[in-house]
Design a protein around this nucleic acid. Structure first.
Lengths: 75, 75
DNA sequence: TATATAGTTACCATATATGGTAACTATATT
DNA sequence: AATATAGTTACCATATATGGTAACTATATA
């Protein structure tokens, strides 16, 4: 579905931006979030539609709230 | 997983609260969000771990942003 | 009683999220 | 050249999110 794909791609770019702002590697984000490294790549490339639990693990790894995770995320 | 279950249950209660504040039925939320009615029940009962796409459909049906969806949602 | 509405539950089928491993590319460094 | 690191890709297996249907309970109301 095109709409869902767009959302995933935008979220992926957003996630990568947040990671790079913190100067950490994908492997480090994987380690902190307890999500495996290939899956971090898939998330950042917008190839998957993360669940709430995954979003929370990412926000915790980035040391921000769930609300802050979507601060600059516009559809 | 207990942590994941807790998150789902909290989100379910939060979602139901938001729906009731708007005075709409589960069927109406289902209609507006394009999510089927049994699945709305599962979401509100915390029996499922919604994806980002589902969260966005819910926020749009509730006429709030994704950020606002998590405004009062504390882990 | 009967009807209508809201919510729930039990199924099933399909799509996909996630984890895991391995190998690959590219880059930088020794 | 050799090593190390970062990111990616190709697999596979498993768990589960979602949709769909039907039937059920409960409540309110005509």
């Amino acid at each position: 579905m095109k709409e869902k794909d767009n959302i995933q791609k935008k979220f992926g770019k957003h996630l990568k931006k947040l990671r790079l702002e913190r100067g950490i590697t994908g492997a480090e984000l994987a380690r902190r979030s307890f999500i495996d490294k290939p899956h971090i790549t898939r998330l950042e490339k917008g190839e998957t539609n993360p669940t709430l639990y995954t979003l929370i693990k990412l926000s915790q790894a980035l040391e921000i709230s769930l609300q802050e995770l979507f601060q600059e995320f516009k559809l």
